[in-house]
Simulated assay, not measured.
Amino acid sequence: MFKRILVATDGSTLSKRAVASAISLAAQHDADLIALTVVPRYATTYFDGAMTFSHEDVARIEKQWAERAQEMLGAISTRAQAAGVRIKTAAISSDRVADAVIAASKKHKSDLIVMASHGRNGIKRLLLGSETQHVLTLTTLPVLVLR
C-alpha cells in the first residue's frame, strides 16, 4: 500500500516509538523509509528568547546540534537496515519544522508521514505538538500520528 514513508523524529521517547512503528510499517509494506530530523537554528534575538553569544559560539552550538542529529539518524538507519528496510536519512536546518517536514515529503515523493503527537520542550525541542498539528493541517498526504 505504501511505497515511501517519511518519519519525522526529534529523538524524544515518543518520537523513538514513532520511528519503531515506521520501521515496522515499512518492513510490512516493503516500502522505502526516509528518516527526517529538523535541526533548529539558534535564536538570535531577545524576542526569540536568545542569550547573546558571539557568531562563533552560535556556529559551534548549531554544529553540535547537527552532529547529534546525524548520530541519531545513523542509529535509526542501522535499526532500519537490520529490519531489512531501505532507508535514506535527512537532517534539515530550519525554524519552520512543519514546512520542512512537508517539503521533505514532497521532495522524496512520500505517500505517508509518520510522526509523534508531540516532542520536546525548551531549547532542545526539534518537533512540537503544534508542529504536528501544522503538518496535519497543511499536507494533503495521510499522516500517522503516534502517542
Rank of each mutant, 00 (worst) to 15 (best):
I92T: 14
D48M: 11
D30C: 01
L25M: 10
A43M: 11
L136W: 05
A31R: 00
I102G: 09
R79Y: 01
L146D: 02
S110I: 04
K106P: 05
S110M: 07
K106F: 06
Y46G: 08
I102W: 11
A27P: 01
D30V: 06
I113L: 03
A8M: 12
P40Q: 06
M1Q: 00
S77K: 05
L25G: 02
V97S: 06
A80C: 05
I87D: 02
I5L: 05
P40R: 09
K107L: 13
T37D: 00
T89W: 04
S94V: 10
V101I: 15
A18C: 04
Q133N: 15
A59G: 12
S21Q: 12
T9D: 09
L138H: 15
L25Y: 05
S12A: 08
E62F: 01
V85N: 02
R79N: 11
E131Y: 11
I76C: 07
T37N: 00
H55W: 10
D30G: 05
V7H: 10
Y46A: 12
R96Y: 07
T9L: 03
R4I: 01
T78K: 10
S110Q: 03
K106I: 11
D10L: 09
S77I: 00
K124C: 12
L136E: 15
A69Y: 05
R96L: 05
A20R: 13
V38R: 09
K88V: 13
A90G: 14
T132I: 09
L36V: 03
S21L: 08
M51P: 08
Q70W: 04
D30H: 13
V114D: 00
S15C: 02
S24L: 12
I92R: 03
K3R: 06
K63W: 01
